[in-house]
Amino acid sequence: MLQVSIFQTLQNNLRGVDFSLLLVDVMAIAEEVDSQLAQAMTSYVAESKLDMLPVHA
């Protein structure tokens, strides 16, 4: 959702944006969002695997 919002905002402001200055920053933001999503998914999968383990009291 964050990436969609960022790119929608850029699209809505194409006339006032200097992409020669902005492109590197947008790519860095996209990479960070992807990294955080990957970390969240890794944690989710790890937690799901723990939930599937038998409980011994």
Score class of each variant (00 low, 15 high):
N13Y: 00
L53H: 04
V4F: 02
A38V: 04
H56F: 14
N12K: 09
L50G: 02
L37Y: 09
A30Y: 01
L50E: 07
D34E: 14
E32C: 00
L22E: 15
R15L: 07
I29G: 06
K49S: 04
S35G: 11
A28G: 12
A46P: 00
A38Y: 07
L14M: 04
V45K: 13
M52N: 07
S20G: 11
V24T: 02
H56V: 07
A57Y: 15
L2T: 03
V45P: 05
Q36P: 00
Q11P: 00
R15C: 05
L23K: 12
S5N: 14
I6H: 05
M27S: 11
S5T: 07
M41W: 08
G16S: 12
M27L: 06
S35Y: 12
T42M: 10
V4Y: 06
A30F: 04
D18M: 02
V17T: 09
L37K: 10
N12G: 09
A30H: 06
K49D: 02
K49N: 09
N13Q: 00
D18F: 02
M52G: 11
S35I: 00
F19G: 00
M41L: 10
L10H: 03
E47W: 07
E31Y: 08
Q36I: 05
A38P: 00
H56L: 01
D34I: 00
E32L: 01
H56P: 10
S5C: 03
V26D: 02
V55H: 13
I29E: 11
L14F: 12
E31Q: 10
M41D: 09
I29S: 10
N13C: 10
Q3K: 08
T42I: 09
V33Q: 09
S5E: 15
F7H: 15
V55W: 11
V33G: 08
S48F: 14
K49I: 08
Q11T: 08
T42N: 05
L37R: 10
L50H: 09
A40K: 07
E32R: 03
P54I: 00
V24A: 14
E32D: 15
Y44I: 03
L53W: 01
Q11V: 12
V55R: 15
M52F: 05
M52V: 02
V26L: 03
L21M: 14
D18K: 13
I6G: 04
I29W: 06
D25K: 15
S20L: 06
V45C: 09
R15E: 11
P54C: 04
Q39M: 08
L22N: 12
A28H: 12
L22I: 07
L2Q: 09
D34K: 13
S48K: 15
V26G: 05
S48R: 13
G16Y: 02
A57L: 13
V45N: 10
G16A: 08
V33N: 13
S35H: 10
A38F: 06
S20C: 03
M41E: 08
A57K: 12
E31K: 01
Q39Y: 10
V26C: 03
Q8T: 15
L23T: 15
A46N: 10
L23S: 15
Q11N: 13
D25I: 00
S20A: 05
F7P: 05
M52I: 00
Q39T: 05
L53T: 02
V24N: 12
T42V: 07
V55K: 13
N13H: 03
V33T: 07
H56D: 11
Q3W: 13
K49V: 12
